[in-house]
Write a protein that binds this DNA or RNA. Structure first.
Length: 640
RNA sequence: GGCGGUGUAGCUCAGUGGUAGAGCAUGCGGCUCAUAACCGCAGUGUCCCCGGUUCAAAUCCGGGCACCGCUACCA
């Protein structure tokens, strides 16, 4: 019997949730919901990875046990998933006994079977970074980060991964669906052309106190991947609940980011093989959301906060944008501008407006009840509409199975446009004036029926808004959540049910206001509206010496909460600049970054510190974002 | 350096051996039920460059350039 077991990566509990986490989890949720819509039993797993150095340090800092630290931070994910309408069936934490005990059993068995052995390892170790480097990685006798290293010998445990190299190559080659998209499959095969080493799976407890103890050596804990990856099987009852395990394993889809490709396409398959378990059907690597060409990440400071986006424009709109604007597997660009364009075009103008116009007509002319259609009053226009909408049902299902959600959504929006066309051509408002009540009822019924099907197809992506819309069509209770077999049939909507126009489903985003905010400092053609107040001439603009600068040093200004004292390289000189960005940036975040400064600003003394210029930053309420330069530009370059 | 990917309308992208497509943005027209919305029409492109195969290539082959990813760093 067909079933669908889908997983997200487990997220590091110490991370602050960002758009990357949100995207992966929403994607998994959308896939899970679509499979439920198809009537397929679904098991959707997500969770958190809770061991490791950073958790330990954070706990030390907070003066609490590491488990308490995890308990404290895990809620950030759990709450976010709730806010984003995530419908996972299980949430596994790697510190739970149901996980740790299974990891230990697996380790014990593999050790017994000589799949795990101990060996002495010698290498260059950086104490401050807590990691080893190979001879080749060292730069001038230091770590690539410039930290001192020392030669140390250490015994560790290794998993005999190398012995499965050829098996893995053969498996990947004979299972084209195993690693997707194809590019990632090639990447993995490319990686496997080099000799595969054994995998170090332990850390001495003295160096890494927070982890799962090795059952055969209490001085060691299990190292990250052998712990984390096992969540996919421990969560569904491996070695604990045979029936549940057989029901769900092997997983149908491990959804991962492209940054953890190798761990999932090399480590994990060989681990499973050593355990004698089946391979997951598909490991699917999605792309990243980029902002101005760089990866969204905390270290580059360009994180878009998913919670804020959801608060501002609605969870459903965020989910829709993320699903509609990314071709699965490729990278995509995340911008407010892109969001607004997509939202207005598809949701406000096409779908929201369609619902509004149709349901208001129903309210006004049919007493707020789903009208009774008269088939003798139906003609070719109704047939065209019916075909177009039902075709979208098939298209959505096809695209979904091919992991092309964006294309499926485009097909559904196409059906919405077709319905708008139908309403225009049938002109129900004219029919009302002419008193053609039978024909009017028929037209409005067909338009509502199209809305019923479309709302069902979009439900997995926008469960909240589509539930509202479906309720407006008179659906209640269990009818709100759609089922495919009811979407495939035209004419399911029951006449006579109460229908009402909901308050604006997707209010338009005012792009004029948005543009002003978004463009701010961006250059605009000044000539066009030269007479308008508040504009400056190009000459006036030219007086500003905007230049790029590299931050060399940064430190807080004593006695000031908001100020940082920066030393910057302007290419031909060094400058000291005081900037009020301490609330948003730690000094270490800034060093090495290329920023934009006003170089010919009159010097000033702020809090007793001389400032020779101004650092540009965008401000929104109390949020701050420094202005940086995309691409590699030398310090001192002119900006304009 | 090796491997892989990408390069198509202003933007985001689809596509195919046979007169170049969609959405958005733009312009014009229509309608007025509706969220300054909707509907219609209109464009614009050396389909990265050079060469080859072919009756015919943007689509196949060879070479090059640019960007991205993975991987390796050779003397």
């Amino acid at each position: 019997m067909e079933r669908f077991y889908i997983t997200t990566p487990i997220y590091y509990v110490n991370d602050r949730p960002h758009i990357g986490h949100a995207y992966a989890t929403i994607l998994a949720d959308v896939l899970a919901r679509y499979h439920r819509l198809l009537g397929i039993p679904v098991h959707f797993l997500t969770g958190t990875d809770e061991h490791g150095q950073k958790v330990w340090e954070a706990a030390q800092l907070a003066g609490i046990p590491p488990q308490a630290q995890c308990d404290r931070t895990v809620v950030r994910f759990q709450q976010l998933w709730e806010q984003l309408a995530i419908t996972h069936d299980d949430f596994i934490r790697t510190t739970e006994p149901r996980h740790t005990a299974v990891v230990q059993e697996i380790l014990a068995e593999l050790h017994e079977r000589d799949e795990i052995y101990s060996a002495e390892y010698e290498g260059w170790y950086s104490v401050s970074e807590e990691r080893f480097y190979t001879e080749k990685e060292l730069v001038d006798g230091r770590s690539p980060e410039g930290k001192p290293v020392q030669r140390i010998r250490e015994t560790n445990y290794f998993f005999r991964m190398s012995r499965y190299q050829q098996w893995l190559i053969d498996y990947i080659e004979s299972h084209p669906e195993f690693i997707q998209p194809e590019q990632r499959r090639n990447e993995t095969l490319g990686f496997l052309r080099q000799p595969l080493g054994d995998l170090c799976i332990s850390r001495p407890r003295s160096r890494m106190p927070w982890g799962i103890e090795l059952p055969f050596d209490r001085d060691y804990v299990c190292y990250v991947w052998f712990d984390a990856l096992v969540n996919y099987i421990s969560a569904v009852g491996y070695r604990r609940d045979e029936e549940t395990f057989r029901r769900w394993w092997p997983a149908d889809c491990h959804l991962i980011g492209k940054d953890i490709l190798t761990t999932h396409t090399v480590y994990w398959p060989t681990m499973l093989h050593a355990m004698g378990l089946e391979m997951p059907r598909t490991i699917f690597a999605h792309g990243w959301w980029l902002s101005g060409g760089s990866k969204m990440s905390k270290s580059t400071g360009n994180v878009t906060d998913p919670i804020e986006m959801a608060d501002r424009h609605g969870v459903d709109a965020l989910r829709y944008y993320l699903m509609a604007d990314m071709t699965l597997g490729q990278d995509a660009v995340f911008t407010e501008e892109g969001f607004a364009l997509r939202y207005n075009a598809d949701l406000a103008n096409d779908l929201g407006n369609l619902a509004s116009r149709v349901l208001r007509l129903v309210e006004r002319h049919r007493d707020g009840r789903i009208p009774h259609p008269d088939e003798t009053a139906a003609g070719p226009a109704e047939e065209t509409l019916r075909r177009a909408v039902l075709a979208a049902v098939g298209e959505m299902e096809r695209r979904l199975r091919a992991m092309q959600i964006d294309r499926g959504l485009a097909a559904v929006i196409g059906a919405v446009r077709e319905t708008n066309r139908y309403v225009d051509q049938s002109a129900p408002w004219t029919l009302a004036k002419e008193g053609a009540t039978t024909r009017l009822a028929t037209v409005l019924y067909h338009a509502c029926e199209a809305l019923r099907i479309v709302s069902g197809l979009l439900f997995p992506v926008m469960p909240g808004k589509m539930a509202e819309l479906r309720a407006s069509l008179g659906l209640t209770g269990e009818e709100i959540a759609p089922r495919l077999e009811r979407l495939r049939v035209w004419g399911e909507l029951e006449p006579g049910r109460p229908a009402s126009a909901p308050p604006s489903l997707f209010p338009r985003i005012d792009r004029r206001a948005h543009d002003t905010a978004a463009r701010g400092a961006a250059r605009r053609p000044a000539a066009k509206k030269a007479k308008t107040e508040g504009l400056i001439s190009f000459q006036e603009f030219s007086r500003l010496a905007l230049r790029t600068a590299r931050v060399l040093e940064a430190e807080p200004v004593a006695g000031a909460d908001r100020l940082l004292k920066l030393t910057v390289d302007l290419g031909d000189e060094r400058r000291q600049i005081v900037a009020g960005i301490a609330p948003a940036y730690a000094p270490d975040d800034l060093v090495g970054r290329t920023v934009v400064v006003v170089a010919n600003l009159e010097p000033a003394t702020i809090r007793g510190v001389r400032s020779e210029g101004m650092l540009l930053a965008a401000r929104q309420g109390d949020r701050l974002g420094i202005v940086t330069v995309a691409g590699d530009v030398a310090p001192g370059s002119a900006v304009g």
